[in-house]
Amino acid sequence: KCNTATCATQRLANFLVHSSNNFGAILSSTNVGSNTY
């Protein structure tokens, strides 16, 4: 594990990016499902 501020910031940034991608995918699939019905 790294405990430097830079490494922690990069890890946090990566986490936010992945979370945003997952959130966007969920919204996209939900919109497609609602449009189908």
Rank of each mutant, 00 (worst) to 15 (best):
K1D: 06
K1E: 09
K1T: 13
C2Q: 02
C2M: 00
C2W: 02
C2H: 09
C2P: 00
N3L: 05
N3T: 08
N3S: 09
N3Y: 02
N3D: 12
T4A: 14
T4W: 04
T4L: 08
T4Q: 13
T4Y: 10
A5R: 09
A5W: 04
A5M: 09
A5P: 08
A5T: 10
A5Y: 07
A5F: 07
A5K: 06
T6F: 10
T6V: 07
T6H: 11
T6N: 12
C7T: 01
C7K: 05
C7V: 02
C7R: 00
A8Q: 15
A8R: 10
A8N: 13
A8I: 06
A8T: 11
A8G: 15
T9Y: 03
T9C: 15
T9L: 02
T9H: 10
T9S: 11
T9P: 10
T9K: 04
Q10T: 13
Q10C: 08
Q10I: 12
Q10N: 12
Q10E: 08
Q10K: 05
Q10R: 06
Q10A: 13
Q10G: 13
Q10V: 13
R11E: 01
R11L: 12
R11V: 15
R11W: 00
R11T: 13
L12F: 14
L12G: 14
L12E: 09
A13N: 12
A13Y: 08
A13Q: 10
A13F: 07
N14I: 10
N14M: 06
N14T: 11
N14Y: 06
N14R: 03
F15L: 11
F15W: 04
F15R: 02
F15V: 14
F15T: 10
F15I: 15
L16H: 13
L16P: 00
V17D: 02
V17C: 02
V17Y: 09
V17T: 01
V17S: 05
H18L: 14
H18E: 04
S19H: 09
S19V: 13
S19P: 01
S19N: 15
S20W: 03
S20A: 04
S20N: 15
N21Q: 07
N21R: 02
N21H: 00
N21V: 10
N22K: 01
N22E: 03
N22M: 02
N22T: 02
N22D: 00
N22W: 03
F23E: 06
F23I: 13
F23Y: 14
G24S: 05
G24N: 10
G24H: 00
G24T: 12
G24P: 00
G24L: 01
G24M: 00
G24W: 01
G24F: 00
A25K: 01
A25D: 00
A25R: 02
A25F: 14
A25G: 06
A25I: 15
I26N: 03
I26S: 03
I26E: 02
I26D: 00
L27R: 03
L27M: 14
L27D: 05
L27F: 15
S28M: 08
S28N: 14
S28H: 13
S28K: 06
S29I: 15
S29L: 11
T30A: 06
T30S: 04
T30N: 13
T30E: 05
T30M: 05
T30G: 05
N31R: 04
N31K: 04
N31V: 04
V32W: 04
V32R: 03
G33R: 08
G33W: 11
G33P: 07
G33N: 13
G33Q: 14
G33C: 07
G33S: 12
G33I: 11
G33M: 06
S34R: 09
S34I: 02
S34W: 08
S34L: 07
S34P: 11
S34A: 11
N35P: 10
N35H: 11
T36F: 12
T36D: 09
T36G: 12
T36P: 13
T36N: 14
Y37H: 10
Y37L: 09
Y37S: 08
Y37T: 08
